[in-house]
């Protein structure tokens, strides 16, 4: 192993930023992390609670790899991970993952399906005949003209919101709604759909906090 800095630690206002080299071998990265925390920086890191922000750079990291780093940092009781900046592996469309939201962009065209795990912010349009599905919430900055399915693995707490909503069909968990027939409106702007008492409802986005006081999701 070289003595190049694979892990650089910088102090910021609310804690420490760990910048992790994104080119090197992952095991080397882990090793240097251990060395830094257990040897060179041990004294520096002892003491009161410190917030840590991890920045993986351009390296695509798996959940397993994240857990390895978390485990090393977790050994130091005074370090608390507040945020992780990284790209997911094998997903070229992803811009970034921050605060528990996956950001994607593009156009979901007729015949295409885009599936995401967790909450998704989609920058673009979902066209008629296209579908966007996610296990969490769906936020669309664009037009939803096709189908959206939030909480796809059964979470009826999930919501679907869009700048422009003119969907062919909406699904949340196992609740299905055909908005034009059921809501009496052809299209809406800046609204979101949610499930209440087993029925789908829509409301203005500025009322979102009433339905989901926990939003935005915390890391």
């Amino acid at each position: 192993m070289t003595s190049k800095h694979l892990v650089s630690i910088k102090g910021v206002k609310d804690g420490l930023v760990f910048k992790l080299d994104d080119q090197c071998n992952y095991d080397d990265l882990l090793q240097e992390m251990r060395d830094k925390l257990e040897k060179t920086h041990q004294r520096f890191l002892a003491g009161p609670q410190i917030h840590v922000h991890l920045k993986f750079g351009k390296r695509p990291v798996t959940e397993e790899q994240k857990d390895q780093i978390k485990e090393i940092i977790g050994r130091h009781g005074n370090l608390e991970i507040r945020s992780i900046d990284c790209v997911m592996p094998n997903s070229p469309g992803i811009v970034q993952e921050a605060a528990g939201i996956t950001v994607k962009r593009g156009i979901v065209r007729s015949g295409q399906t885009l599936h995401c795990e967790g909450n998704v912010l989609f920058l673009g349009d979902v066209n008629p005949g296209g579908s966007l599905t996610s296990s969490g919430d769906i936020y669309i900055l664009g037009s939803l003209r096709g189908m959206a399915h939030a909480g796809a693995s059964g979470n009826e707490e999930a919501i679907i919101s869009a700048s422009h909503m003119k969907p062919t069909q909406l699904r949340i968990g196992s609740v299905i709604s055909r908005p034009p027939d059921e809501w009496g409106v052809e299209e809406t702007y800046m609204e979101f759909a949610y499930v209440q008492d087993g029925k789908m409802e829509i409301d203005k986005i500025h009322h979102l906090h009433r339905v989901r006081p926990d939003l935005p999701p915390q890391p």
Partner: peptide, 14 residues
Amino acid sequence: ENAAVRDADRVIGL
């Protein structure tokens, strides 16, 4: 027409 536009959209994706 809606159907033609829908098919055009599909084709653009392909």
